[in-house]
């Protein structure tokens, strides 16, 4: 080896591999190094989703639109469920937006580890990239559906308040909820294939305990904080507050949601990380 090569060699990054034990660090720095992979996996998911579909991206709009239609007819018109003095279609659609973002991202993330088992067995990268990219993939649909919402707001002549500045926070909260649940489910699914069957049920169940077809104001005031422990309740009411300007005094409820998500997310990260080292052997 020449002197030059030797000095090069000392500058090379050094990796140590040894059995890990006890608590593992999150290695967020490493995750950052792999941001391009994160980008490409998300891009792949989006790209592949609408290939060979007849309606393509129209699906992103059709799903919330049709659901809104059904909700409006059955819950709004026939069951006469109150909608906090907002036109019912707008009331439902505003809630369906974050809901679909959450439901889609959660189920994608929940299945992501099993779906990517070939990758996991053949290549090293921080495994967190997989559920995170699955969650981010839901954003494109969300943006498309959001355009429709803007149109509806013009139609109903609803003007948002400054609360709209907080909208990104609520979007983040929805994504964090999806990621938190997705982390738990995807890590569990590596070991227990039941998760695949649990997901549809979980999504449906969750839909009913979230104020989408009905307003949270139906829930007695003293129970609202407890109700807010469902993070999606906070997200949905946050969306309505930010976009439709209805102040239902849901502050404490939204706070409860934020706390619940944080706990769920930290737990999910820890669980995922503790199983990460065995993924390639078990999956």
């Amino acid at each position: 080896m020449t002197a030059e090569e030797r000095s090069n060699a000392t500058e090379l990054p050094v990796t140590h591999i040894r059995p890990t034990s006890g608590l593992v660090s999150l290695k967020l720095g490493e995750l950052w190094e792999y941001r391009e992979l994160l980008f490409f996996l998300t891009w792949r998911d989006i790209k592949v989703r609408y290939k060979q579909t007849a309606l393509g991206a129209a699906w992103a709009i059709l799903q919330p639109l049709l659901t809104m239609l059904v909700f409006t007819i059955f819950f709004g018109r026939l069951a006469k469920i109150p909608s906090d003095n907002v036109p019912y279609p707008l009331f439902a659609y505003t809630a369906l937006l974050p809901w679909q973002l959450f439901a889609y991202s959660m189920s994608q993330a929940g299945n992501s580890m099993v779906a990517s088992q070939q990758l996991i067995k053949k290549i090293y990268f921080p495994r967190l990239v997989i559920p995170i990219s699955a969650v981010l993939g839901g954003l494109v649909d969300f943006c498309l559906a959001f355009v429709v919402l803007i149109g509806m707001m013009f139609y109903y002549q609803v003007v948002p308040t400054q609360g709209i500045l907080l909208l990104p926070f609520f979007i983040l909260l929805a994504l964090a909820t999806a990621l938190a649940v997705g982390l738990w489910l995807s890590a569990l699914s590596v070991k227990y294939r039941d998760v695949r069957y649990t997901l549809p049920f979980l999504t449906q169940f969750w839909l009913f305990i979230t104020p989408i077809a009905y307003p949270s104001s139906l829930v007695p005031e003293k129970w609202r904080i407890l109700y807010g422990l469902n993070p999606m309740a906070g997200v949905v009411e946050g969306f309505r507050w930010a976009l439709l300007g209805k102040s239902g005094a849901f502050g404490p409820m939204i706070l409860a949601s934020a706390v619940a998500v944080t706990v769920l997310l930290i737990g999910g990260l820890a669980y995922f990380k503790s199983l990460e080292r065995t993924f390639a052997d078990v999956v």
Binding site: A9, L12, P13, V14, T15, H16, I17, R18, P19, T20, I120, K121, K122, I123, Y124, R277, T278, A280, D281
Partner: peptide, 19 residues
């Protein structure tokens, strides 16, 4: 697979210089 960090060794250690 151990050298490429896909799976972890049960014991021992490895030092790698370079990407």
């Amino acid at each position: 697979k151990i050298l490429s960090r896909i799976t972890e060794p049960t014991r021992g250690s490895i030092e790698i210089r370079g990407r």
